[in-house]
Amino acid sequence: MSNTLLKIESVCKIYPGNILALNNVNININNNEIIAILGPSGSGKSTLIRTILGLTSLNKGNIYFRSKNYKDNNFNIIRNSIATIYQNFNLVSRSSIIKNIILGDIAKVSSWRLLFNVWPKETQDKAKDIIEEVGLNDIDYNKRVENLSGGQQQRVGIARALIGSPDIILADEPVSNLDPQTAKDILNLIRKTAKKNNISVLCSLHQTNFAKTFADRIIGMKEGNILFDKPAKKILKFDLNKLYK
């Protein structure tokens, strides 16, 4: 059985105005592998993540999940297997911590349960376990997320990603809005929970030093092209900040 979980094959994305965001991108993501994508703003990192999620259509190429090609109409095959963590957390700010977390399971809940806000007990129990796992057990989980710090909000974001038991987490600059220490803690948490639950991670980052300790593999991107794709161990000695010059 192949170890490849997600295969991105010759993907091109051109935005209106002939802006080339992704140019013939090829990436293989293996099971239980943590990958960091580095690159300056506009290098195509976010577009790549949005394309995998089906939030942006691709102009050329294919994306395979467990060897199944998915296009515009059959994203459902990946919905239950892919979770996302966002730079701006993308939480429902006026809803509670636990509500935001169980929303990670929204596609699996029946319409009438959603209408009357009656969530299955097992989902709620699972959410409570995950709250502990992401280190939010000291906070009242009925508190609104708008009253939490940035780091705490991102922990809620991680918990929301974990509740659906995904095979892969896509993280779009998850620590850009956080201070260095909180950023380090959050990346450690993502790595720890991913390894524990056998989840692959594709994470775009700007902090090259964090990427070296966080990822198993590092991909460098610039202007929609992949410049390098190497195991983290092999590029520890290189100054990756040159990517940003």
Binding site: L55, L103, I106, A107, L114, L115
Partner: peptide
């Protein structure tokens, strides 16, 4: 943002409206 997050999770439009927009 929250609407994108729920859309990526496979929510239908009315689910997104109820859970991400209404609050």
């Amino acid at each position: 943002g929250p609407q994108d997050a729920l859309k990526a999770l496979g929510s239908s439009r009315w689910r997104i409206l109820k859970e991400a927009v209404l609050p």
